[in-house]
Design a protein around this nucleic acid. Structure first.
Length: 291
DNA sequence: CAGCCGTGGGA
DNA sequence: TTCCCAAGGCT
């Protein structure tokens, strides 16, 4: 596929002018802060992350600080960010950073990938954004911009790490600062202009180059991503109710109290067993507590 | 690899 | 109101 050579420079210039003032973009923001923010941003919107991130870093300014407290403290501080397993994984990663890397968030992508809860996106985001290294960073925003501007599709195909990283690599300038701006700019463009529902093409710096626009905005015909199951009444719903109770309580939550949270006994038992299996709840004498 | 994992806000 | 989906990762 041929890439219009103007795209990276246009995106980088647009980013310089239009970047949101987000905490993790502050000069001197620590790599640990970047790692924490990336964990929190996995499937949780920016606006909900910002206040929790500030609290978190004030309380645990280093990996060692987090590693020194029980994992349950992390789960409680995670509050209502959702997917509380991420709090458990972040705590595990803090322990690993402390034990294996002397408390320094690793620079190396393979070392980052070896941390619990760090996958292909997060590892490269930390290497690129915290340390300024030249790695392609591809998230859901970047994939959408590439799908539209370069491939002429309304939506990206299902994620393929090999294909997505190669596509982004082709856009990355050699210069470190420019590469950083293109990585961040593609994400930012997807986040605030080339959005999933109603893209603001009038504000897009590459609208005149966009393959999807040039093709007349054809509807997406490829494989759709699996539709999210309904939350109301789901196992995730019940797990969420139980976790909210465990976070609020500072004494063991009895089985009787858990019964009041959800009437369907088999589903309730399944949810609770799942939480115990995941390590998010443990039984202690009289009831369930955070780990 | 498809399914699973929370929560809340905008359209 | 209902639906969509948000800086993913693990099994």
């Amino acid at each position: 596929m041929s890439v219009p050579v103007e795209i990276p420079a246009r995106v980088a210039d647009w980013f310089a002018e239009n970047r949101r003032d987000l905490p993790w973009r502050d000069p001197g923001f620590p790599a640990w802060g970047t790692l924490v923010s990336e964990f929190m941003l996995q499937q949780t919107p920016v606006a909900r992350v910002i206040p929790r991130l500030a609290e978190w870093l004030e309380r645990w300014p280093t990996p060692q600080a987090l590693a020194s407290v029980p994992a349950g403290e992390a789960v409680r501080a995670w509050a209502n960010l959702g997917y509380p397993r991420r709090a458990l994984w972040l705590h595990a990663a803090a322990v690993q950073i402390t034990e294996r890397h002397g408390g320094v968030v690793p620079h190396n992508v393979d070392d980052l990938l070896a941390l619990t809860g760090v996958g292909d996106y997060t590892a490269r985001a930390v290497a690129a954004f915290a340390y300024g290294l030249r790695h392609p960073v591809v998230d859901t925003n970047t994939r959408r911009v590439i799908a539209r501007a370069l491939d002429g599709n309304a939506e990206p195909a299902p994620p393929s790490n090999t294909r997505d990283l190669a596509a982004m690599e082709r856009l990355l300038p050699d210069n470190l600062d420019d590469a950083h701006a293109v990585n961040a700019g593609m994400m930012e463009l997807g986040a605030i202009v080339c959005t999933a529902r109603s893209p603001r093409c009038d504000a897009c710096p590459i609208a005149d180059l966009c393959a999807w626009r040039q093709a007349g905005y054809p509807e997406y015909e490829g494989k759709r991503k699996a539709v999210q199951k309904k939350y109301e009444g789901s196992d995730r719903h019940v797990r969420g109710l139980i976790m909210a109770e465990l976070r609020a309580a500072h004494v063991p939550v009895t089985a009787l109290e858990i019964e009041t949270l959800w009437a369907d006994a088999p589903q309730r038992d399944r949810a609770l067993a799942g939480l115990v299996s995941d390590g998010l709840a443990v039984y202690a004498e009289t009831g369930y507590v955070l780990p």
